[in-house]
């Protein structure tokens, strides 16, 4: 009946990575319109680094698997491209280095958030966002787009949907 009339909608991507069993990870990216209505969803099969990889990557393993492997793949995979990607796992901020869209991390409740420089934080809906320090222009790009997002919006909620959908997908075991 209704819906965005033009192609100029502002689309948000919600990315979350979950741990599956021992040391394996799976990620999901939900693209919604500015009201939180789903437009597209993609998720990965679980990625399980082997022992060699774990040793060789050391502490960099997780950011690599999460951002470059999972995040980037998902972003490439979705047909409806998000104009802003929201995450609540700081490790995923690194995704910014591999995708053209701004990536922001929800930092509510983080005591350090008040210390963030103004250029890297932004209030959207009920949430405070932090941006990648090396992409200072992101904040302004995002700020222009999120004007359409309701001041009452809860940006954490769609991420819970992602978790739920990942759980469902993994349970069905038919992600192939």
């Amino acid at each position: 009946m209704a819906g965005p009339k033009s192609n100029s909608g502002f689309h948000l991507g919600f990315l979350r990575v979950v741990e599956v069993g021992d040391d394996a990870f799976a990620g999901g990216l939900l693209v919604t319109n500015h009201l939180g209505r789903p437009l597209e969803f993609q998720c990965t099969t679980p990625v399980r680094p082997n022992r060699t990889q774990a040793i060789l990557y050391g502490p960099t393993l997780k950011p690599f698997v999460w951002s470059e492997l999972i995040g980037k793949t998902l972003h490439a995979r979705v047909d409806v491209k998000p104009q802003l990607i929201l995450v609540d796992q700081p490790a995923l901020l690194e995704l910014r280095e591999h995708v053209p869209a701004p990536v922001a991390c929800l930092v509510d409740g983080d005591p350090r958030s008040s210390e963030l420089a103004d250029v890297t934080r932004l209030q959207v809906g009920r949430n405070l966002l932090r941006f990648h320090t090396e992409f200072p222009e992101d904040r302004d790009i995002a700020a222009a787009g999120v004007e359409r997002v309701s001041a009452d919006a809860d940006l954490l909620e769609p991420l819970e949907r992602v978790t739920e959908a990942l759980r469902e997908t993994l349970r069905s075991g038919s992600a192939a």
Binding site: N7, H11, R37, L39, E40, T73, A176
Partner: peptide, 19 residues
Amino acid sequence: WNRLKTAGLTFPEGIEFLP
């Protein structure tokens, strides 16, 4: 790493935004 497989769906409302 590149063996990563994905699964997903596009919602009816998302179709109009497909490139």
